[in-house]
Amino acid sequence: MTIANLESFIVEFFNAYGCNVQNQESGVIQVELTEELDKALMNRPFYWHYMKSLNQQGVPMSLTLITDPDKRDMKGEWIDIGSPRLQQIFNHVTSQEKYVLLFQEVEAEINTPLYPWLLANFKISYSGRQKKEELISLGIHLLNGKMIVNMMDELEKLTLKQQISDLCYTITPIITLSSGYKRLEKIILNYIDNQPKEWANEAMETLNEEIALLQHFYQDDLDDKILKKEVEELNNRYTPEINIEVISGGIVYLLDNFPKS
C-alpha cells in the first residue's frame, strides 16, 4: 500500500477537481462538491435528472470526511482505507484519469525540442489457486526506441503540464504508437516468461487431482450432468491464467536528457 497519508490524498483529490476544500483542523476535511463529483460520488441520479428537466441549476452537496480516529464521534463521515467512500474515489480516479498527454515544463531561453515518449503502466495478474498482481511502468522513446522501467517514478521528479512551455517545440515520432506499444508488450511477455512458474504448476496439479477424484466418485456414470458441472467448476477455479492489462498511460514530451541518471 502506498498511500502514506490518506488525508492529503483526499484533499489533493478534491482540489484537483476544483472543489472548495477546508482542512483547517487535521483529521477533518470539509468539501463543497462540484456538479461533476456530486454526480460521481453521491449517487442521486434522479435529483440531477429532475433538475435538468426543470432546466434548473442543481446544488451540489457538501461532505465532511473524518480521518482521525479520535474525532470519529464528530458529525461527518468516517473514511478509512477500506471504506466504501474511498473505494468510490479510487474507482472514479482510476477509471476516469487513465490517459495523459503531457509536456515537460521548461524555462527555455532558446528554442528547445521535446521528445515523445510512450508511457504504459502494466498490471499483470497471475491467477491459479490464488491470485497475485504486479504493476510495471514502462516507457519507450518514440524516436530512438530506448526503453526504461519505472517510468512513473522518473516522471514524478519532473513538472509536467498539459500545455507546452514557451519556446519549446515537439519532435514528431518515428515509431508509431502501436509499434511502440508492441515493443513494450514484448518486454512484458519476456519478463513473464522468466518468472518462476511454481504457482501455475501447483494449480495444474491440483486441478488434475481434483478431476481424478471426481471421476472416481462418479465412476458408475461418467456422463452424469452434475459431473460435467463439477469439472467445469474446477476448471474455472484452478486453470492458471495470466492477464496483462494497461491500467494507465499516454504520451509525454520530454527533454533530451531524460532520464537524468
Partner: peptide
C-alpha cells in the same frame, strides 16, 4: 483528447498501487 492532468494521473496511479495484491 480528453486527457487528464499530471496531478490526477498520479493520484490515479497511487490508487492503483494501493489496490494491488502483491502476494499469492
Amino acid at each position: 483528447g480528453p486527457f487528464t492532468s499530471h496531478q490526477l494521473f498520479s493520484l490515479a496511479h497511487q490508487a492503483d498501487q494501493a489496490k494491488i495484491i502483491p502476494s499469492f
